[in-house]
Computed example of a mutant assay.
Amino acid sequence: MFFSSQFEPKGKTALIVGSSQGLGAEIALKLYEQECSVILVARTASKLKAQVERIVSTVGKKDNTEIYYISSDVSNYKAAQDMWDEVFHKRGQDPDFIFCCAGSAVPKLFIDITEKDINDGIDINFKTAYNVCHTAYKTISKVHSNKESHEYKKRTIVLFSSVISVFPFIGYGQYGPMKAALLNFSIILRQELKPFNFRVATVIAGNFQSEGYDVEQQTKPEITKVIEGPSHAMPASECAQIILKNLNRGVDTIYTDLIGWFVGCFYLGLAPRNWYIVQIFVSLLLLIIGPIVGWSMDRDIKKYYQQHKLSATVTEQAENSDLTTTSTKKS
């Protein structure tokens, strides 16, 4: 629905979680450039401070427009509550836009994923957004308890999922399930918060250049690269511009590239449509060719494991070696 809602940042306030680098930082810059006050939130204070300085030096100091940061690990629920307490009660602000940009992928084969990888995947890719939205809604409900639901001002929540959530494949077992959970969460959140004048938009992001993207390449399995194929990572600033442009058009399921939109047709469900009629025809086509795509991926994966030693075998040998060493020491 292109004209159901507009996005007008000037004179408003945006809180951006995951804005110490990458896409979140570029969104902060572009919003501040449009005279929207921005609150940058992430875990590392030094990175946040550097981004605030970069933004101000890039676009210049804006009159009557604030920019500051809050260092907080909002994957911790209490920390998320404290963050909103500072924004609402200490700063006296009531953000119009909430961007949940935090995300971190550790591409590995399932056997190689560590306990830390699992916990980080859940914390960064899901709990951060969930905690921020839940504590925000409870705080707003308390602050405006004297109002009827239709009297709430218009607010927008933007959740950041991934193409992997709609087209999952080998190597993203630590990341994909959490981003898929966010997509599911966005539908439920939209249903519950719409009566209170909340708009909930979801970004199905493709590859974009960032520090995180460079780190991903260090652990990404070869079979993952084969299935992904040649992938162009667009500049984060360009990706941010696409997102804000689509928000302004009233789009609530935002794809950052054409391939993302195409594979997104594999998953439509209850999510808002983007190019509704075209998506229906493409999804019908994918119903036919989907099994062929799946067969091709399975063939490549089987071939990969035939040509490479299984990580499980290597791990098992290492564990046996450790047991032998321990037994020798005890003797």
Score class of each variant (00 low, 15 high):
I188D: 14
P272C: 04
K10V: 13
N320I: 10
F2C: 13
Y175S: 08
G103V: 04
L247G: 03
K62F: 07
H144W: 10
F2T: 15
K90Y: 10
F208D: 05
Y69M: 00
A240L: 03
T224C: 04
E211T: 15
I157W: 02
Q307S: 10
T326Y: 14
N320H: 11
N274Y: 11
H232K: 11
V166D: 02
G171A: 06
Y175Q: 03
F110E: 05
A105W: 03
T135W: 01
V282P: 11
F208C: 15
T328N: 10
A236G: 12
K194G: 08
Q174D: 10
S327W: 12
Q6F: 04
K302S: 07
S186M: 01
L285Y: 13
F88Q: 09
V293F: 15
E151W: 00
A14C: 06
R273C: 10
K62A: 09
I27E: 01
I277E: 14
V282R: 01
L270S: 14
P230V: 12
L270I: 13
E35V: 04
K194E: 08
K309Y: 08
F266D: 03
K309Q: 14
V158G: 02
D257V: 08
F185D: 08
S237E: 15
Y305G: 05
L23T: 05
V263C: 03
N184R: 06
S327E: 13
K47N: 13
V314Q: 06
G212V: 03
Y68C: 02
A80G: 07
L189T: 15
Q81H: 03
L159S: 07
W261N: 04
Q93E: 11
N207V: 08
I111C: 09
A180S: 07
I157F: 04
K309V: 12
Q306L: 09
N76H: 07
I111H: 12
K62H: 09
I289W: 04
P9Q: 09
F2D: 10
F126K: 00
V293H: 07
D73Q: 00
S5A: 09
S37Y: 05
Q6A: 07
A233I: 01
S37I: 01
V106R: 06
L323I: 08
V17A: 04
K245T: 15
V17F: 07
V143P: 07
Q279K: 15
L285A: 13
E228C: 11
A136W: 13
V263P: 05
L29T: 01
Q93A: 09
F88G: 10
I164F: 10
H308G: 15
F88A: 14
V215R: 02
T224D: 03
V17I: 14
A312Y: 02
D112K: 07
D63W: 00
A240Q: 00
L183R: 15
M1C: 11
K309N: 14
V143H: 01
D123T: 00
K47Q: 10
